[in-house]
Structure formats: C-alpha cells, structure tokens
C-alpha cells in the first residue's frame, strides 16, 4: 500500500520541483521571482482544455499550451521587466504579481471556476510496478522533471549562453560592462521559464484539475520548493520538490496530521529559510 502513496507523492513532488526549477532558472539570470509563473501555466492549460472541448486533436492542444505560456512569459520579460530591472528583488516579484492578476482575471473571465477534466493521451497509458499502477502522465512528469533539471544544469555549465546566464546571476551591472548582451540572455531565461510553466500547467491541470485559480496559486508550493534551493541551486530545488511531495503524500497515513498534510511545503520552506539566515544580524537595503 505504501507504494501508492510514494508514487502519488513523487508525481506531485515532481510538479513542485519542475515549477521550482523554472522559477530558479529565471531568478538566477534576471533577479525576478516570477509569481505569475502559475498563472502563465494556467493560461496554457486552460487553452489546451478549451481546444480539447472543441475537438481539436491533442497535439494541437499541447502546442497551444506551451506556445501560449512561452509567449506570455516572453511578453512580460521583454515589455515590462526592463522597466524594473534596477529595482529591488522584492519589487520585481511584486510586479509579477500584477501580471499574475491580469492573466488570472482574463482566464477566470473565460473559464469560470467549474469542475473540468483535462485528458492527455498519457492518461490512458500505464504500467504496474509492485502492484501499484503508474499512469503515463505521472511517469512523464517524473521523467521530464529529472531530465529537465539535469539538462538545464548541463546547459548552464557547458554552453556559451548558459555561462553568460551564470555571469548575469552573479553581477548584472558588471556583466553588462563586460559586454554580456544582457537583454538577449534574459530573453533566453524568460523563454525557458515560459516553456516550463506551460508544461507544468498542463501536467497539473491533468493530475489535479484545470481551473485558473488552482493553477495560478500552484506557484505558492512551487516557491516553497525553490526556497529549499535558496532560489539558486537546481539540484536542491529538485530534491526539495520531491521531498515535499513525498512527505505530503506519506503524511496521509498518519491519522492526526493527515488533514493538514498539504502544509508540508510551507513548513519545510520556512524552517529552511530561518536556518539559512541564522547567522545574520543586520540587514541592508538592496541585499536579500
């Protein structure tokens, strides 16, 4: 029986982790913690659902979801983010909240909160491991998460753009003085993050429910996973997401805490944040 809980936890954790990775990649190179990440994914997932309802073939729905999310992410990155590029990180984060509200309002206008189901071809696939059935979607989420995390890590280390992204992450002004094409590199970051947002939105829409509100605020546990990685480390974010998912799922088995199990991401993240800050005494503006 434990297997069921482990699998469910890993699938959920993988979504958290993948969202977290998307957040971290962007934050590292642009300094923007994108609170609109969930909303961007939501828009993609809702479009996919709509297209499915209109009897379009499934690949069209997939492409539309990923494309819509990427475009939204790029639009913000190119059109709005530059106005705020020299502000404090918290202001940049709060600004993305404005973008999130705009997307959420639009999505809620077209798709009021209602019970829906999103079907993906992977739902019909599946295999049994140790008496536990694993659907194709769950397997896909897990594999995609692992592949993406390591893929991006390699990309950052071994390609020119990746290295430039790393440079931006460390010192933005210095990099631009040294001739790093800041805008172009940042655009890559918004692009990668947008694709990941679209994919996680689609997966979450399938595994939980395709509703704009639910998908938009999925960003909160995803931020928790990103916090575990201190908004820097991809492997830590991956581990954080997976651990949070498994802890949350396994807590189901412990009777008194079962109803409160979805608090897991926040407890883990809060404890970690406090631990990381334990030696600081004073704070100065501009530093986080």
């Amino acid at each position: 029986m434990y297997g069921v809980f482990l699998v469910a936890g890993l699938a959920l954790g993988a979504i958290y982790a993948l969202s977290g990775v998307g957040l971290v990649v962007l934050y590292r190179s642009t300094g923007v913690l994108n609170i609109a990440y969930g909303a961007i994914g939501a828009m993609g997932a809702m479009l996919a659902w709509q297209l499915e309802q209109m009897q379009y073939p499934e690949p069209v729905a997939w492409v539309a979801a990923l494309l819509a999310a990427t475009l939204l992410s790029l639009a913000y990155g190119r059109l709005v983010a530059p106005y705020l590029s020299y502000r404090e990180p918290v202001v940049k984060a709060v600004a993305t909240l404005g973008f999130a509200l705009m997307i959420l309002g639009t999505a809620n206008y077209f798709w009021v909160e209602a019970p829906r189901r999103l079907y993906l071809f992977t739902d019909a696939m599946g295999f049994e491991v140790l008496d536990v059935r694993i659907t194709g979607t769950r397997a896909l989420v897990l594999i995609a998460t692992l592949a993406t995390t390591f893929g991006i890590a390699i990309f950052l280390k071994h390609t020119r753009i990746g290295l430039l992204m790393q440079a931006l992450a460390n010192k933005r002004e210095l990099s631009s003085v040294l001739g790093v094409p800041v805008i172009r590199i940042e655009t890559y970051a918004w692009l990668i993050s947008g694709v990941l947002a679209g994919f996680t939105g689609l997966m979450f829409g399938d595994l939980v429910r395709p509703n704009p509100g639910a998908l938009t605020f999925l960003v909160i546990p995803a931020i928790a996973a990103a916090i575990v990685g201190r908004l820097e480390s991809l492997p830590m974010t991956l581990a954080g997401g997976l651990i949070i998912g498994v802890v949350e799922s396994m807590s189901t088995l412990i009777k008194p805490i079962a109803p409160y199990r979805s608090i897991a991401p926040f407890v883990v993240a809060a404890i970690l944040l406090l631990w990381l800050q334990r030696n600081r005494k004073l704070t100065f503006s501009g530093h986080d």
Partner: peptide, 29 residues
C-alpha cells in the same frame, strides 16, 4: 482547493471497503 488524488489516498489509508462519494458531481468525477 479540492484535490481528488489526495482524498483518494486518505480514503485508501482509512481501511474502508466502500467509498461513499458525498460530493458534487464534478468532484465525484
């Protein structure tokens, strides 16, 4: 934020042999 998967896991963990879905249609689905 109703999460059907999570509720199903809790129901499985309860050791019951019958699931009574006292839910609106969408959530029961």
């Amino acid at each position: 934020a109703p999460d059907a998967n999570s509720a199903l896991l809790e129901a499985v963990a309860s050791g019951a042999d019958t699931f009574l879905m006292s839910l609106p249609a969408g959530l029961a689905q």
